[in-house]
Simulated scan of single mutants.
Amino acid sequence: MKELLGTVLRIERTSIHDGQGLRTVIFLKGCPLRCRWCSTPESQRSDPERGYAPDRCQLCGLCVNLCPEGALTMSRDERKVIADSTKCRKCFVCAAKCPHNAIKQYGRFMSVPETVREISKDEIFFFTRAVVLLLVEESL
């Protein structure tokens, strides 16, 4: 049987926003809504995608040299890296090797067991408090 995959945008650990308590939040890609006020537009497409922050780019050319498909070129006059989407096969070597974090990978395919294994790493944070509270109550 083929394993079911979803596209995880990011896993946010020790989130304390939107209410009381500590939690791990899994942000998924593939939102069908197109809200004008969307704070996470990189979550809308369901496939992993490449993002580029020209203000972080130092034009070192490492991504251009490492791209196995030759999908990236340097534009000196505009001071940015240009991607040819027809050549890019979304291997994300450029994102993994960018020393300035100018190229990012938004999303990755993960199976349910893989996701559970990843968030299970945070288990100690969720159950430790309950154990401590029980110990405190027993000592009173």
Rank of each mutant, 00 (worst) to 15 (best):
S120D: 01
F125L: 15
R45E: 15
R13F: 00
T14F: 02
I124Q: 04
D47V: 05
L66G: 05
R10Q: 15
P99V: 15
I124S: 06
Q58K: 15
V136D: 03
E3I: 13
G70K: 10
G51N: 11
R89N: 02
E137S: 01
P99S: 13
C35F: 03
A130N: 13
R23P: 03
V25T: 15
T128M: 04
C57K: 12
F109D: 07
A130W: 14
S75H: 11
P99E: 14
S75P: 01
R13A: 05
C35Q: 07
G6H: 08
R10E: 15
A102M: 10
R56W: 09
V8N: 03
D18N: 03
V81S: 07
S39G: 10
P68M: 11
C57S: 12
H17S: 02
W37N: 05
P113N: 11
D18E: 08
L5P: 00
T86C: 02
R117P: 00
L140C: 03
L72M: 10
E137A: 01
D47F: 07
P68V: 10
L72A: 09
K90Y: 09
S15L: 04
C94I: 02
L140V: 00
C98K: 08
V64P: 00
V112M: 12
A53S: 11
I82W: 01
V132W: 09
P99Q: 15
I11M: 05
V112Q: 10
I26P: 02
R129T: 13
S120Y: 07
C60D: 14
S46Y: 12
K90Q: 11
S139I: 01
F125K: 08
L9A: 12
A95I: 12
Q105T: 13
K97F: 13
K121L: 09
L135P: 00
M110W: 15
R36E: 09
K121Y: 11
C94D: 06
S75M: 07
S39H: 07
V132H: 07
D55H: 15
I11P: 01
Q20I: 04
V116F: 04
E114K: 02
A102F: 03
L62E: 14
R13E: 02
L62W: 08
P99H: 14
I16W: 01
E123T: 05
P113F: 13
C67A: 14
C60G: 10
D18F: 05
A83R: 09
L140S: 04
G21P: 10
A95K: 11
R36M: 03
R117L: 06
R23F: 07
Q44G: 07
T115R: 07
S39E: 04
F92L: 09
P32I: 10
L66V: 08
T115Y: 06
V25L: 13
E78G: 02
I124N: 03
C63E: 13
S39F: 04
H100T: 12
S120I: 00
L59C: 11
R13I: 00
K121S: 03
V81I: 15
I82P: 00
E78R: 12
